[in-house]
Simulated scan of single mutants.
Amino acid sequence: MKRRLSIALAVLLLIAVVVVVVIDRDDSTPAASGETQQVRGVIGSEKVAFFRDRRVVDAFARHGVRVEVDSAGSRQIATTVDLAKYDFVFPSSSPAAQKIQRDRKITTAYTPFQSPMAVATFEPIVNLLSANGVVRQGGLDVGKYLDLARTGVRWDQLPGNTVFPARKNVLVTTTDPRDSNSAAMYLAITSFVANGNNVVSTEDAENRLLPELTKLFLDQGYTEGSTDGPFGDYLATGMGRTPMVLIYESQYLDRLIRGDGSIRPDMRMLYLSPTVYSKHTLVPLTPKGDQIGQLLTTDPELAKLAATFGFRTNDPRTFNEVVAEHKLPVPADLVDVVDPPTFETLERLLDAIGKQYR
């Protein structure tokens, strides 16, 4: 009897030890210890600041993920970047994302935010172009602008120009069309207008428009590979060097929201009329990448943070709340918006223009 009692006590003690061990192991799970799962992506450069912001990092960590990103141009992501080591791609244009989907037979994609193309300029330039019929109702009339660019009109040749008599062509400063998504979006807008307000969809139209479209880029001289370059010049050097700079709306709003004084009282943002939306489209390559797409699309905290970087969110109410909170001078909706050509059409145009640089 005593032996049976001793065995029973030993069994009870063993069970107690197992329970303690199990509890201890539960305390060391990733959720309890703060461990996170690493997810890797390649993204457009204009989103790097968002992904590396401490608030964004912490928001992802609360969902058990740590997102590490590399940056590349949208064209590069779609054509030359080795995607084998990534869980998701996040180019800045829907045509690039659609090419990746087609090439990899992926049906899922997320567009958590987007940004229309705009022009950063200055109040004297706005007044001068308004007097010459190029700016109307707060927007840069692309048709009127192309009329000036087509004939090589200089700033000092504009009637009544006493504020900016520069001896250089009236041109919007863009990025390099061989590298940059923003330059591709500019090409999408200008090709649409030059094509009689129709999306370019045939090779005949491409060949007919190429000389005029090429001139818009080559006449600028040197161009940089990222919008951060010309926008930085705009902020630092003022009207003399860069009277009009192509930007993403989000870049300008980001600076206004920061309130760091980089947007001075004489600076203005004009929307192109028409414009296009640069749609930041995430394509998941693995289940982990799909989780990032879902979080960016559905998590209210991440959406609010994206809006504070100037991005127009999937749910417009989030963006509008940030606009109202910071009293940003932007419309809730843009009406004069067109679609870009297909990726293949844009690629042919960009490649043809790029060859003229050599």
Results as ranks from 00 to 15, higher is better:
Gly160Trp: 11
Arg258Gln: 12
His63Pro: 07
Asp228Tyr: 08
Arg167Glu: 15
Thr237Asp: 13
Gln294Cys: 00
Tyr271Ser: 03
Trp155Val: 04
Ala120Ile: 02
Glu344Phe: 06
Pro316Lys: 01
Asp336His: 01
Asp228Thr: 07
Val335Trp: 05
Thr318Glu: 05
Glu203Ile: 06
Asp27Phe: 15
Asp266Glu: 14
Tyr248Phe: 04
Gln157Thr: 12
Asp260Lys: 03
Val42Gly: 11
Gln98Ser: 14
Val69Pro: 01
Ser115Ala: 07
Thr111Tyr: 00
Tyr234Gln: 00
Asn320Gly: 09
Arg104Thr: 13
Met239Lys: 00
Asn197Gln: 10
Pro30Ser: 07
Ala8Lys: 08
Ile106Trp: 04
His326Gly: 04
Ala59Pro: 02
Arg75Ala: 08
Asn132Tyr: 08
Ala332Met: 05
Arg178His: 08
Leu171Arg: 11
Leu128Met: 04
Asn132Ser: 13
Asp260Thr: 07
Ser182Leu: 05
His280Gly: 12
Ala120Val: 02
Leu346Pro: 06
Glu203Trp: 01
Asn195Val: 10
Phe309Ala: 08
Thr223Val: 10
Thr214Ala: 09
Val193Ser: 01
Thr108Ile: 14
Asp26Arg: 13
Thr162Val: 15
Thr345Ala: 05
Phe113Trp: 06
Leu305Gly: 07
Asn132Cys: 13
Leu272His: 01
Ile247Cys: 02
Gly143Cys: 10
Val283Cys: 12
Val276Ser: 09
Ser130Gln: 08
Val142Lys: 03
Thr190Ser: 01
Val11Ile: 15
Arg167Gly: 15
Ser71Pro: 13
Asn127Ala: 09
Pro159Ala: 10
Gln76Phe: 10
Leu12Gln: 07
Phe217Asp: 02
Thr227Gly: 02
Asp333Val: 03
Arg241Cys: 11
Gly34Met: 00
Gln220Ile: 04
Leu158Lys: 00
Ala306Met: 11
Thr107Asp: 15
Thr227Ile: 05
Asn320Ile: 11
Val153Cys: 10
Ser273Cys: 09
Tyr222Met: 08
Ala32Glu: 14
Asp87Tyr: 02
Pro284Gly: 07
Ser45Phe: 03
Glu321His: 10
Thr345Trp: 02
Lys327Tyr: 00
Ala303Gln: 13
Asp147Phe: 10
Asp26Thr: 13
Glu325Ile: 07
Lys327Ser: 02
Asp315Ile: 00
Tyr110Pro: 01
Asp336Leu: 03
Val245Ile: 00
Arg167Ile: 11
Gly229Pro: 05
Val193Gln: 04
Gly34Val: 06
Ser6Tyr: 15
Val172Met: 00
Arg317Asp: 14
Tyr252Thr: 01
Thr162Asp: 15
Ile100Tyr: 00
Pro265Ile: 03
Leu12Met: 12
Gln157Asp: 14
Leu218Thr: 13
Leu83Ile: 11
Thr242Gln: 03
Ala49Arg: 07
Glu35Ser: 15
Arg102Lys: 14
Ala352Leu: 10
Asp24Ile: 12
Gly160Asn: 12
Phe319Glu: 05
Val67Lys: 01
Ser273Gln: 07
Asn132Leu: 12
Asn197Ile: 08
Val11Asp: 10
Gln137Asn: 14
Gly310Ser: 08
Leu146Pro: 13
Glu344Gln: 11
Leu187Lys: 03
Ser278Arg: 09
Phe51Cys: 09
Ala49Phe: 06
Val39Asp: 01
Leu235Ser: 06
Ile292Tyr: 01
Val276Ala: 12
Pro230Thr: 03
Leu187Asp: 06
Asp351Gly: 09
Thr174Asn: 13
Leu246His: 08
Val67Asp: 00
Pro112Gly: 04
Asp27Arg: 15
